[in-house]
Computed example of a mutant assay.
Amino acid sequence: MSTVLTPDDVGHLRTGAHFLACAIDPTAIHVYAGMIQETMQTRSVELITVDELAPEDLVVSVGMVTQGLFISDMPPVGDEFTGCIEAIETRLGRRVRAIYSLAAANINGIIPLMVGLQSSLPVIDSDPMGRVFPLISQTTLNIGGVAIAPIALMGATGERAVVEAGDPQRAETLVRALVTELGGWAATVMYPCSARQLAEHGVHGSISRMIRIGQILEAETSAESKFLSLSELLGVTRIARGRVSHIEGLSRPTDLGLPAQPSSVTLEDETTGQIIRMEIQNEILLVLVDGAVAAAVPDMVTLLNSEHGSVANLDDLRVGNVVDVLKLSAAPQWYSEAGLDLAEPAAFGIPLQHPRRHHG
């Protein structure tokens, strides 16, 4: 069922995208949401399911890849994504029929709407992560053997590149190097595939899910009632309600060229006195309760302000704050052997296997 999205939907989507990646600086999401709502006064964007396309239709992912530069420091001028789509069409000799998001959270959760408005292409309610991961190789399409290349990039400098790389990890290395050269961020179009491949290997309902999360979080209800609605919608569980007791930047180096400032946050559970420790690299990768693993990537962990039920940004956490530490499961593909190889803590340099490795 295709839907024409409204400015209200964009506001909810912004909040939902922030909820699923509480670690980020939300400025860029707000800037983008404002631009999209403004553009919607004269143009419309259509949200479709992947089943509405012909099986062999060409679809591509759109997303920002950043390397150390906040997008809000040097915003895109507008033609970056359409330029990348044209580059892929020229390279493949085929028209792109629809676009989908590279990730279902953070800035990339909302970018397809802007690109849909600019290109008049419909936006598919699917993505290849079902959350956000730092590496472009960490996708369910990669798990399913769908090629990442050709990849088109255009950055802050206005220069454009097309990368051909068979190996997703190698593509990751080349794209990161180019993004640095292109000024710190790049609009990218990658994973060109058929609608059938996306239907088979993607995560579905991602944009409508973020909109629904936003509706829940923006409702005039109590924090507890928001939590119950999120539990019903997403199977969210509460690991703890904790008071922040310690925040530190870790000395542990990040390898693999992971874009991250590792840090950790210690909290004390208000009721039980248990000690909660969160390990962070862009996202919350690991939560330990009295030393036992309570959540580990690819599980999603997010924080809500325990008083208002609004998203608590990691950047804004201060000693003494009380937050709810919430956990939700990632898409099922991530718990397969191949999925855990790509996205369990060990993939982020934390020498730990995901608990599901041992329990089938």
Rank of each mutant, 00 (worst) to 15 (best):
275 I>W: 05
264 S>V: 06
275 I>T: 14
320 G>V: 14
280 I>Q: 10
282 N>V: 05
299 D>I: 14
268 E>L: 15
289 V>F: 01
242 G>V: 02
246 H>V: 09
284 I>G: 10
288 L>C: 03
266 T>S: 15
252 R>W: 00
286 L>K: 09
297 V>E: 00
310 S>H: 09
284 I>P: 11
277 R>C: 11
268 E>Q: 15
311 V>A: 06
296 A>K: 12
263 S>E: 10
285 L>I: 04
245 S>E: 14
262 P>Q: 04
304 L>Q: 02
272 T>I: 14
294 A>P: 06
308 H>A: 11
263 S>L: 09
289 V>W: 00
321 N>L: 07
245 S>T: 15
253 P>N: 00
266 T>L: 12
294 A>T: 03
317 L>W: 04
331 A>I: 00
308 H>L: 09
266 T>A: 13
319 V>N: 12
320 G>H: 13
323 V>W: 01
299 D>A: 14
255 D>A: 14
272 T>W: 10
291 G>Y: 05
326 L>Q: 10
322 V>N: 05
274 Q>W: 04
304 L>E: 00
265 V>N: 08
264 S>Y: 07
268 E>A: 15
246 H>E: 10
260 A>L: 06
281 Q>H: 11
277 R>N: 12
303 L>T: 09
313 N>I: 00
308 H>K: 08
258 L>Y: 06
331 A>W: 01
274 Q>Y: 04
324 D>S: 14
242 G>M: 01
244 V>A: 15
311 V>K: 03
262 P>G: 08
264 S>A: 12
285 L>R: 11
